[in-house]
């Protein structure tokens, strides 16, 4: 009897943790999906941090300086700006075959620098035209677990339900998706059967960049509706880790993003409940918990890889075979 009560309590706490992680994870989910799309065709875009920044700052500029009142339009503008940045990256690494790691880091640095510079005069100005929450199933009491799951803005539903399903279908149920995967695994083979490696890589890198930009725009149009410097705060890097954790599968990207988000909301939960860290002062738990999302993300990458090496039964989900390798037709 007691155990059932305890179980229910744990259950409830767990559900509310995951529920409150949903908005916190959306940025990472969008960026990770964008990164995964590029990596599926063999392009590693380390510039996620910069793309989130560019998407966010142009959404802010659209609202505050260009007088855009619709959050949808602001989102599109942020996505377009990030797509443009992604196009520069894609031309450098796909057309000119420059080193993807170097140019990716350049995009991360340059994108963060550019967005911070553009955002300087807009620091802290609140954004009024945010996305509004819509209920997915009647009405419920404030603060209930159901509310945490079924009361969000439309971007959340798109990012958590529509996008992964659509991408799963595209990647694993269509010929086009098979061609995409072939380009990422073995571009020479794809090329031989007439798939344009360059077009596929350019297109999906740019589309992926637009999705990452949507993550940034979502941040300022819903999650924290104001500009602040270094707005991505490492989410871009976490997104890249989530892709590895997810084994390049759209559904698992959702799980990885939620894991990160749960760690973030653990901090607010702990503060609300007045938890304390043993042997330390009362304010130390927050510092400790702020390290946790990165540590947990790191461990989440290592465990499947290590398990695959140690136990033979676990199959490792390998990266696309041609990831980060430029394709030269005459070297095949």
């Amino acid at each position: 009897m007691i155990s059932a009560q305890v179980l229910a309590l744990i259950d409830n706490a767990f559900l509310s943790l995951v529920g409150s992680a949903i908005p916190a994870s959306t940025v990472v989910l969008l960026a990770a999906t964008g990164a995964m799309l590029g990596e599926r065709v063999g392009v590693l875009n380390l510039g996620q941090e910069g793309l989130i920044g560019v998407g966010a700052v142009y959404a802010v500029i659209a609202v505050l300086s260009w007088g855009i009142t619709s959050p949808w339009l602001a989102l599109l503008i942020g996505m377009a700006a990030a797509a443009l940045a992604g196009l520069i990256f894609a031309v450098a690494v796909v057309v000119f075959r420059a080193n993807q790691v170097l140019v990716g880091l350049a995009l991360a640095l340059g994108g963060v620098g550019l967005s911070n510079q553009l955002g300087t005069n807009r620091n802290g100005t609140p954004i009024q035209n945010t996305f509004q929450e819509v209920s997915l199933g009647g009405s419920f009491e404030d603060g209930s677990v159901l509310e945490a799951f079924l009361f969000h803005d439309p971007i959340v539903y798109l990012a958590y339900i529509a996008m992964p399903v659509a991408l799963w279908f595209l990647l694993f149920r269509t010929r086009h998706g098979m061609n995409m995967r072939a380009v990422g695994e073995n571009p020479a083979a794809a090329d031989a059967v007439g798939v344009s490696v360059m077009r596929s890589r350019l297109g999906y890198t740019v589309l992926g960049a637009a999705l990452s930009g949507a993550g940034g725009a979502y941040m300022v149009l819903s999650f924290t509706p104001t500009w602040s410097p270094d707005i991505a705060r490492g989410r871009g890097w976490v997104a890249l880790a989530v892709v590895i954790f997810a084994g390049w599968r759209p559904g698992w990207v959702v799980a990885g993003a939620l894991l990160y988000g749960s760690m973030i909301s653990l901090d607010t939960t702990a503060q609300a409940r007045g938890w304390e860290l043993p042997f330390f002062g009362p304010s130390d738990l927050s510092f400790f918990l702020s390290m946790l999302p990165y540590v947990v993300t790191l461990i989440a990458i290592l465990i499947p890889a290590g398990a695959a090496k140690i136990g033979r039964r676990v199959r490792a989900t390998a990266a696309p075979g041609a990831l980060a390798i430029p394709y030269w037709r005459e070297e095949r």
């Binding site: 910069g50 170097l102 880091l105 350049a106 640095l109 994108g111 620098g113 550019l114 510079q117």
Partner: peptide
């Protein structure tokens, strides 16, 4: 910020 933006361009 401009310095870091410059870093990005130089690295490219």
């Amino acid at each position: 910020y401009i310095i870091f933006g410059m870093y990005g361009i130089i690295l490219t």
